[in-house]
Design a protein around this nucleic acid. Sequence first.
DNA 1: TGTACATCAGTGAACGCGCGTTCACTGATGTAC
DNA 2: TGTACATCAGTGAACGCGCGTTCACTGATGTAC
Lengths: 209, 209
Amino acid sequence: MSSRAEQKLKTRRALMDAALAQLSADRGFGSLSLREVAREAGIAPTSFYRHFAELDELGLALVDEGGVALRQLMRHARKRIARDGSAISTSVETFMEYLGNNANLFRLMLRERTGVSKPFRTAIRAEIDHFVTELADDLRRFADEQKRPLSDARVVAEAMVTLVFNQGAEALDAIPKEREELKVKIKTELRMILVGSQALAAHGKTPKI
Amino acid sequence: MSSRAEQKLKTRRALMDAALAQLSADRGFGSLSLREVAREAGIAPTSFYRHFAELDELGLALVDEGGVALRQLMRHARKRIARDGSAISTSVETFMEYLGNNANLFRLMLRERTGVSKPFRTAIRAEIDHFVTELADDLRRFADEQKRPLSDARVVAEAMVTLVFNQGAEALDAIPKEREELKVKIKTELRMILVGSQALAAHGKTPKI
DNA sequence: TGTACATCAGTGAACGCGCGTTCACTGATGTAC
DNA sequence: TGTACATCAGTGAACGCGCGTTCACTGATGTAC
């Protein structure tokens, strides 16, 4: 039935799930201990080393999964936009859905993105960079289709991602009502950036203020 | 000369400076230990308790100082804007100056703002809320003076602060050249938001995309 | 001004704790013939 | 198919370490008279 390799994968998964399960508003990855994760996963501390050389290696494996989630999220949002239109609203709705369904995975990404461990920051930054690049491509494509040119598509994409991720971090621990308000706020912010970028492209001027 | 009370204040300051000195890109407040801070400050670990009930209490005292720095920063920026105009550019320049001169204090604020300790998050959020409120007031005043109405001044202010603080966190460990590029990027982002908010106020519409 | 007592910042020894990591091991699973 | 050997995920004992915290103390500074 369960070959040795299959069993090993199961234990590895149990370790990653155990780590994820302990993340919360008040527990960052940095406060986890190897012994704690092993305990939660139901194995001896020493067995941990059969799967990862150190705790950070497990963390980086989780970041990889976070990257996969981000790419899925983008694909999913694109499909929905193609069907329903309303790019900003649909994107924000999709993002919040993914956030809710993978709370602790996103918690890890959102927090360690500016966290204390260099390997983490680097790995997460790479995932987010990729995300930003794709978003910038989409923005340019939309702008072309609609004949409303944008200035600095990449900067627009970065600002949008920064705002969405920051509000997302707040949404994680908000009650449903606050979460809805956050969605409205994010959509407003994204509209401002988009319209602002179109306006700057249109008359190519810096504003008065 | 040095009364007992004066000496006590000096030691307290030494403890806070010791904690600040150990913060860096790779050391968050959460990774400090009481013994380490006491060692760095040149006192016995047990003496720490003459000044703070626990390490977090010292951290919150640092957050208070961060709040003071933020309020100074805002006053300073206002004066310079009154003299030189160019609100966005001047504000960003002022922010970056303060960042450079109080690197580790800002590091603490920027990182613990989304960090793992609830008392920290709450205290920093309060400081930043105050900052956002003042900025929103300024934005409304400018809008009136220039007869260019803004929509959602508070949301504009929040978005601006989020973007500036996030890029600020990156600027902390950037080389001077990157730092200049970051300034340009921030200014572009702030202009987009401002112009976008003016555009939304002007025709009161949501954009096509 | 001098004296007797109170205050209290700073100390060093000691504690128990959870940690990461090493090591030699066990025994089920896998492989060669 | 059966047998002998190899692999290797998981184990339990043991280690040294830095930690936060307690305690009774010391001795300089401050205060009352």
